[in-house]
C-alpha cells in the first residue's frame, strides 16, 4: 500500500513537469486536433462507401457502425495519450540501458513505465470519439438507459485493460528481441481491424479476434453496450477477459524483466 502511494507521488510530480512542458507546444494541440478530425472524416467516408453497397455490416446499421467508430477513436486516444509515450518507449529503454534508472527507483517498475508520460493533447481524441458516438447514437433514435451507460463504462474500462495488456505483452518481447525497434507497429496493424464490428468478419477471423488477439473486446463490446445489443452475461465475460488479460500480461512482464541484464554504459 505504501509502495502504491509512493508511486503515485512520483507519478504526480512527473505529470506536473510533463504538463508544463506540453504547455510550450500548444501548436501541437491544433495540429493533432486537425489530424484527428481528418482521419475521422476518412473513416466515416470509408463506412459510407461500404454502406453505399449494403444496408448492414454483420448486423449493424450505418449509425451503429459510426457509434463503434467513435468508441474506436476514444480508445486510440487513450493509447496515444498514455500507452505509446509510456510503455511504448520501453524497447528504447531496454536497448539503451535507460531502464536501469527506472529499476533503482523505489516504485513499481511496470506501473511507472506505463504511466510516466502523458501526451495530454491527444485526450482530445477521446472527447471527439465519445462525442461522435453520442451523435451517432442520437441518429439511431435509440433511447439510452441507465443500463446502457453503466455497461458501456464497465466494458470500456475492460477495453482499456485489454489494449493495455496487448501493449505490455508486445513491449515485453523487447527483452528477448532487443533489435526489433518497431514492435508497436504490430499493435497498429492489429487494432485497425477493430474499426468494424467483429460480426462483419468471416468466421476464422472472428475466432482470432475473440480468442487469440482479443480485439473483439475492445470496440465491438462497448459499442454493443451503447447500441443496446449487449447481453448481460457477455458483459460479465468481458470483465473476466479484462481481468485475465491484465493478470497474464503482468505475469509475462515479470518473466521478461528477469531477462534484463542492462545494456550498461
Amino acid at each position: 500500500m505504501k509502495r502504491i502511494r509512493r508511486t503515485m507521488v512520483v507519478l504526480l510530480a512527473f505529470w506536473k513537469l510533463n504538463w508544463l512542458e506540453e504547455l510550450q507546444y500548444r501548436g501541437n494541440f491544433v495540429a493533432s486536433l486537425l489530424s484527428t478530425v481528418f482521419w475521422l472524416a476518412m473513416a466515416m467516408l470509408t463506412v459510407a462507401l461500404y454502406f453505399g453497397h449494403t444496408t448492414q455490416l454483420g448486423g449493424w446499421g450505418y449509425w451503429d457502425v459510426v457509434v463503434l467508430l467513435g468508441v474506436f477513436n476514444a480508445l486510440t486516444g487513450v493509447v496515444e495519450t498514455v500507452l505509446r509515450p509510456g510503455i511504448g518507449h520501453l524497447p528504447t529503454d531496454v536497448r539503451s540501458g535507460a531502464l536501469d534508472l527506472v529499476l533503482v527507483r523505489p516504485v513499481d517498475a511496470q506501473f511507472y513505465v506505463s504511466f510516466r508520460r502523458l501526451d495530454v493533447w491527444r485526450l482530445a481524441d477521446v472527447v471527439l470519439g465519445l462525442g461522435l458516438s453520442a451523435y451517432a447514437l442520437a441518429q439511431t433514435g435509440r433511447s439510452v438507459g441507465v443500463w446502457q451507460i453503466v455497461s458501456f463504462i464497465v466494458t470500456f474500462a475492460v477495453a482499456i485493460a485489454v489494449v493495455y495488456s496487448i501493449w505490455v505483452t508486445l513491449m515485453s518481447f523487447a527483452f528477448w528481441f532487443v533489435a526489433v525497434e518497431n514492435m508497436a507497429t504490430l499493435f497498429d496493424a492489429v487494432i485497425d481491424a477493430a474499426r468494424y464490428p467483429v460480426s462483419a468478419y468471416p468466421g476464422a477471423l472472428r475466432f482470432v479476434f475473440v480468442y487469440l488477439i482479443p480485439i473483439a473486446w475492445t470496440t465491438t463490446i462497448p459499442a454493443s453496450a451503447l447500441t443496446g445489443r449487449l447481453d448481460p452475461s457477455l458483459a460479465m465475460w468481458a470483465v473476466v477477459v479484462g481481468v485475465a488479460a491484465l493478470g497474464a500480461s503482468r505475469l509475462l512482464w515479470r518473466v521478461a524483466l528477469k531477462r534484463y541484464t542492462s545494456a550498461g554504459g
Partner: peptide, 19 residues
C-alpha cells in the same frame, strides 16, 4: 513487422467486402 503492417489494410478491406 512492417510487412505484416502493410498487408493488414488490404486484408481488412477484403474481409469487409467479402461480407
Amino acid at each position: 513487422i512492417w510487412l505484416v503492417w502493410g498487408i493488414t489494410e488490404p486484408i481488412i478491406s477484403f474481409a469487409i467486402w467479402w461480407s
